[in-house]
Design a protein around this nucleic acid. Structure first.
Lengths: 81, 81
DNA sequence: TTTATATATTATAATATTACAATATTATGC
DNA sequence: GCATAATATTGTAATATTATAATATATAAA
């Protein structure tokens, strides 16, 4: 299986879930920490964290710790637009 | 769950599989029938047909029957580029 | 070092996706 | 009608994804 095609479809897979799309829409307005995202979406913290991990793993977002918080922001240029 | 977000993530889901991405790359060069796509990818006919159905269902491609063949082509403007 | 807060990981049950052989359908020509 | 070719559907086992409670980790402040 072609490596580039696999990578491309993996990127799409990262975006193929409504919670993850919602998270990205939140982050399009600027960086945010997990708690704010959680309040925005109104779902359990572990669920948010899981999806943030998937997006981060796919190279769509990145998280930087600042004290107790982790601030997430979009790094994928195609998603940032 | 927001309807538009659901639709957007569904579109991404249609593209989240390497076989389906490969099919679309085939079709970017112009319309094609199932047999040609199958030969291009070298996988079972039923597998190709299944994935064509998923792409069609997602509104990414459309198929038009012409005699024994069904000719598929890309209809999604974002995918066509 | 204890406590509190923010986030991540693990465990697991429910659900969805996948591959593909077998079978069915659809269209054509005889 | 029957035979053939192209495509679609079905059945099903294997695998992957999902949600979320429970637990663990990380940091800061007292």
């Amino acid at each position: 299986m072609n490596k580039k095609i696999q990578k491309l479809s993996d990127k799409f897979k990262a975006l193929s879930n409504p919670i993850r799309v919602s998270i990205l829409l939140c982050l399009l307005n600027g960086q945010s920490n997990v708690t704010k995202i959680q309040e925005c979406l109104n779902i359990p913290q572990s669920t948010v964290s899981k999806h943030l991990g998937i997006l981060k793993n796919a190279g769509v977002i990145e998280g930087e710790r600042s004290g107790l918080e982790v601030i997430y922001s979009i790094v994928d240029d195609n998603v940032k637009g």
